[in-house]
Design a protein around this nucleic acid. Structure first.
Lengths: 220, 220
DNA sequence: TAGATTGTTAATCGATTAACAATC
DNA sequence: TAGATTGTTAATCGATTAACAATC
């Protein structure tokens, strides 16, 4: 029931962390379709991983399958949820109510999974007071004061690059430990603060690189 | 001048591809600040990589530095641009004019770097004809016919999950070789088509996982 | 020249995979 | 029971790093 118990305390490799949400996403789909069992071989086939890798990944956290049967979809999904820390509510604050901010703020899935945006901030005086996803937009000058009264789990940065580090500093000062950064800035934070970046430009450039590589390969 | 020439033809490892845009981003910053030289040690310090890794990454593509000096920023930036395939124009079509679509469409940096959105499509009849970033929004029913007349390098999927595969299939059918996917769908494409995903939910879940892990470590 | 830093090799480290005993 | 599939070990593979000769 404990799986790879000997590894307790060891950090989980990046690769594993990266695949867990993929497992979650696919198991959710299977559950929604009413599928009730799945084997590591089937998961691997669908997600383009090897079966061994999936079993090895899961074994960092426990033993969730049954020999000769595979995994119960609902149960494994619940376990993955647990592993990802989804079984508690997370409070988020969002800074930046431009297009990206609005996109994030209106993603219903987040709220449904317990990631609740509690407040939205922006510098633009024209936006202040507007309601978005049930939240009034507040002036960013009040961010610090707000956070000191109502601590938050995650701070979202959806500002232009130039404002990003400044906002980040306020987050850190107010005790936020998780930052979700949509700006192209490379944020500087203390060791105990976790930053997850969505760098759109990096993503597009990786695509451009691979397109280019592909052309060289076939083109001539 | 050729660097690791012996490796010609070998595929470039994922890790290297992932770091190239980071180099590009930082070199752009240095160039904007007027810095004219940089060593692998300084790059490593700033970006949290080892100096050896940076030199090793670059050596896949050539020899761009000088012993005892380091790298000329402007020159290395130009080389990285070249490596990433940024020295040519890319045409993009965008499907989905919701918040995310609008965010992408209004990102000036893309256009400035030669990634030009040529057309925007949506299903919503209310949006048809609206101008966004210089583009009229067209009905998605015309997507195929449009692409057959005006081939495009990259197709962007900014639709809800349910429409994603369908749009993807049209892209593939019309010869698009690069797909930038913002939907949570796991797209099914032929081997010669490159998909670059921006999975917001995966990103948030990685953050949640690491926050959770952090708490276990320190919390008790 | 002396000092600095590259590009590359060899050594190390870590992640993936194949194989299989355990067992449902 | 026979067949299937797990969790885990050992082998393999690949990526990172340390070290250094080359040289600006």
């Amino acid at each position: 029931m404990t799986g790879r118990g000997r590894k307790k305390g060891e950090a989980i490799p990046q690769g594993v962390v990266g695949r867990l949400p993929v497992y979650f996403r696919y198991l959710s789909e299977l559950a929604a379709l009413g599928v009730d069992k799945v084997s590591s071989a089937q998961l691997g086939e669908a997600l383009d991983f090897t079966a061994a890798q999936i079993r090895s990944d899961l074994s960092y956290f426990g033993s969730f399958g049954q020999q000769g049967y595979g995994y119960n979809v609902a149960e494994l999904l619940q376990q993955v949820r647990q592993i990802l820390g989804m079984n508690r509510r997370h409070s988020l604050v969002l800074v930046g109510a431009g297009n990206i901010g609005k996109a994030i703020g209106s993603y219903e899935w987040f709220r449904a999974e317990g990631f609740v945006i509690e407040a939205i901030f922006d510098v633009d005086p024209h936006l202040i007071g507007n309601i978005h996803g049930g939240c009034a937009i507040r002036p960013v000058s009040e961010l610090k004061q707000y956070l000191l009264k109502r601590p938050s789990d995650v701070g979202i940065i959806a500002t232009p690059k130039d404002a990003a580090q400044e906002v980040c500093d306020v987050f850190v000062e107010c005790g936020i430990k998780g930052i979700w950064n949509f700006s192209p800035a490379q944020l500087d934070v203390p060791d105990d603060v976790i930053v997850e970046n969505i760098h759109l430009t990096d993503s597009l450039l990786r695509l451009a690189f691979r397109l280019n590589e592909r052309e060289q390969r076939s083109g001539f």
